[in-house]
Write a protein that binds this DNA or RNA. Structure first.
Lengths: 265, 265
DNA sequence: ATTCTTTATTGGTAATACCACTTAAATAAT
DNA sequence: ATTATTTAAGTGGTATTACCAATAAAGAAT
């Protein structure tokens, strides 16, 4: 009588592990919404109570969150663990920006290198489409769209590196520096020559990954960030100038009328 | 129509919290067996699926354990309450170890490189003393002291890189992989030849930083981690063997006497 | 007394129905 | 045409019920 052995694995646990894996690997990103419990149950081939048990497990782990009537969502607990300690520190100490960019340079060159080694065909296809939209949107005047496309492009490279730590860390870092990227891009958008340099840099990275040349990809990514760093310096100088001008203006206004709370520190 | 109010608190959560409280307070002691799900459900005045959701939560927290057909029992470990989500992920998904080590390789080679560039005199002095203790303690049989000295050495290098991100991330990583480092070092300690290789690797890193040679430092650190990775593979194989042996032992014990609840999974 | 079989009990899974909440589209009022 | 309201569809939350599979204890056969 050999009836046992296999049934010891509970279905709910299998489902939970599978979902956890998908979240960890990044195929389910923070903020993503899962299908409805009914649909998801039939999709996975299990009953709704079983699915709910699995979801409950992940909810108690903090990986998922539900809103009654709204849906089930993937939390950002894994990434916020990276970001949260830094968020206020960065904004409070601007001198950390250089550290941040230095780290980003290391991370992205490594990402590009690994991506050139390991990218699968679907990764390449994804990079192709993202690069296409990135390049096309750079011709438009929609700076906001440029940022999104830029972030998506770099994130896709990080995910093609097939290292979950690099993937999540890149995503965290992107969120952290999002504001600065936007400042920087607006700064560069007013300078067509440098703006085009950015495009050629993106092309170099993309091409190196496509042609499976890790070293070249790493160098391209590295010099790309270096270029960003230089211009970031200019942008920051300009932003600093504007800010101090604003401070003076605010102060003179305060002398006139002292009223609402000023939030800026 | 104000019909809501109370339903925002989910019944399953209330039940789970109540049970957790009773366990933590001690009215439910480790090893205690809970009533059957059906009885318990009517006793608490909830449905069985709701009770099961509550139980599931506590099971995933590690406070309860079930045996199919046997019953539900209170476990004896209460500490796994506040855990780093990444820590949990790492222990749950062993395939992450390679990602972790790959990231560590990138991080530490960059650390060494930057340290060789930027280390101040006090950094160098600190590294000197730490290297001295590291080298001396490697001659003793105190593996625990070796781990501490090793961690301190690498941490000091990361801090000599003068990048707060790298510093903090390195310490986080060290905490994360501390257990594996100890396994690995114990494994290597039984192999004097490789043990001495470790010492020469540390020497190479230290020397390259002292002599201000970034590339050499990066290469030394990189090959050091690579060496660790290889031996980590061996150590993991051995650990896997021990674990499967333990599994067999547990199974044979179960065949002999089936009595109290076996908590091992 | 020991071993094997049986049986009641337990946890695991599933199907179904209904409730409460959220969202957004459709409608009514301005 | 715009805004505010209503309504309907969809979602997660809970409960009921039933059946399956594994366990453990009682009983029967040796």
């Amino acid at each position: 009588m050999i009836t046992n052995r296999l049934t010891v694995t509970r279905i709910a646990d299998v489902v939970a592990d599978s979902l956890e894996k998908r979240i960890l690997e990044g195929s389910l990103k923070p903020g993503d919404r899962l299908p409805s419990e009914r649909d998801f149950a039939v999709e996975l081939g299990v009953s709704r109570p079983t699915l709910r048990e699995a979801l409950q497990k992940l909810i108690s782990k903090g990986l998922l969150a539900t809103r009654h009537g709204g849906g089930t969502f993937v939390t950002d607990r894994l990434e916020s663990h990276f970001v949260d300690p830094w968020q206020e520190m960065i904004s409070g100490h601007p001198m950390l920006h250089s550290d941040l960019l230095e780290f980003r340079q290391m991370l992205e060159s490594q990402s590009a290198s690994l991506a050139a080694e390991r990218a699968t065909n679907v990764d390449i296809e994804r990079l192709d489409t993202l690069y296409a939209t990135l390049d096309s949107v750079y011709e438009s005047d929609d700076v906001k769209a440029c940022i999104d496309a830029d972030v998506a492009f770099h994130q896709a490279i990080a995910e093609a590196a097939h290292n979950v730590l690099i993937g999540h860390l890149t995503s965290s870092l992107m969120r952290l520096i999002h504001g600065h990227v936007s400042i920087n891009l607006e700064h560069l958008h007013a300078r067509p020559q440098r703006w085009n340099q950015l495009r050629s840099q993106h092309h170099a990275i993309w091409q190196a990954i496509r042609e499976r040349q890790p070293d070249m990809a790493a160098r391209a990514a590295s010099s790309h960030i270096e270029f960003v760093v230089q211009n970031m310096g200019d942008a920051n100088l300009e932003a600093e100038r504007r800010q101090s001008a604003l401070r003076r203006q605010v102060e003179s206004e305060r002398n006139l009328e002292i009223k609402g709370p000023l939030l800026t520190g």
